[in-house]
Structures are given as structure tokens and as C-alpha cells.
């Protein structure tokens, strides 16, 4: 999974620097890396739905895979795998953790 070079993940590297150092949106987290949820942008739709499955500030997430042709991301939250859409993930701000 780690050698799965995701083009979007690479593009995300530069966008990360716009926010606080070490912070980026969930959509930009490269496959195989983990991060901690910091906050949700006000534009996030269905925030209650995400909160109900455990995507609340302080939760640790791992980017597991990108679906073919774009749209979906697969993330690990509290021991289970969820697939969510990239557009929604772009509204969730996380702090990247060291790959170690």
C-alpha cells in the first residue's frame, strides 16, 4: 500500500504549507501516513455524521488508500476502515504525525 504513489497525495505536499506548519487537510494526507484531527472547516457538510463515527478533534486517522479515478479515500478511524469523499476530507484539518 505504501508504494502506491498517489498523485493527489504528492500535490498535497505543497498545499500543506499554507496552514500552520505540520497541518493540512485530510484530503492531502499521503497514503500510509497518520494524522490527528484538529478541527473541521465550517463548510463541512454532514458534520454530525462524521462526528458520530468518531471523526472529532483529537482522533487519530490513517490514510489507507485512494480509490481509482479520484473521488473516494479510505481512512482508518478507531480501528475501522471508512470510505469518505475527497471533497469532504478537504474540510477536515489534521496535524500530520511522523511516519515513524
Amino acid at each position: 500500500m505504501n508504494d502506491d504513489k498517489a498523485p493527489a497525495g504528492k500535490a498535497g505536499e505543497s498545499a500543506c504549507n499554507v496552514m500552520n506548519p505540520g497541518e493540512c487537510t485530510l484530503a492531502e494526507l499521503p497514503v500510509g501516513e497518520t494524522g490527528i484531527v484538529i478541527s473541521m472547516k465550517p463548510s463541512l457538510r454532514g458534520r454530525k455524521k462524521f462526528a458520530d463515527v468518531g471523526i472529532v478533534p483529537g482522533t487519530r486517522l490513517e490514510m489507507e488508500a485512494h480509490a481509482p479515478f479520484g473521488g473516494l479515500l479510505r481512512i482508518k478511524v478507531m480501528e475501522s476502515s471508512l470510505s469518505i469523499h475527497r471533497d469532504d476530507a478537504a474540510n477536515i484539518i489534521i496535524r500530520r504525525q511522523d511516519p515513524s
Binding site: R74, S80, L82, I84
Partner: peptide, 12 residues
């Protein structure tokens, strides 16, 4: 209209 938020669990 906007689609509903897509959220699906991938069970083991």
C-alpha cells in the same frame, strides 16, 4: 441537489 454525505464502512 447536493448528494448526501458519502460515508461507508469497509468491514474487515
Amino acid at each position: 441537489g447536493d448528494g448526501e454525505v458519502y460515508l461507508m464502512e469497509l468491514p474487515p
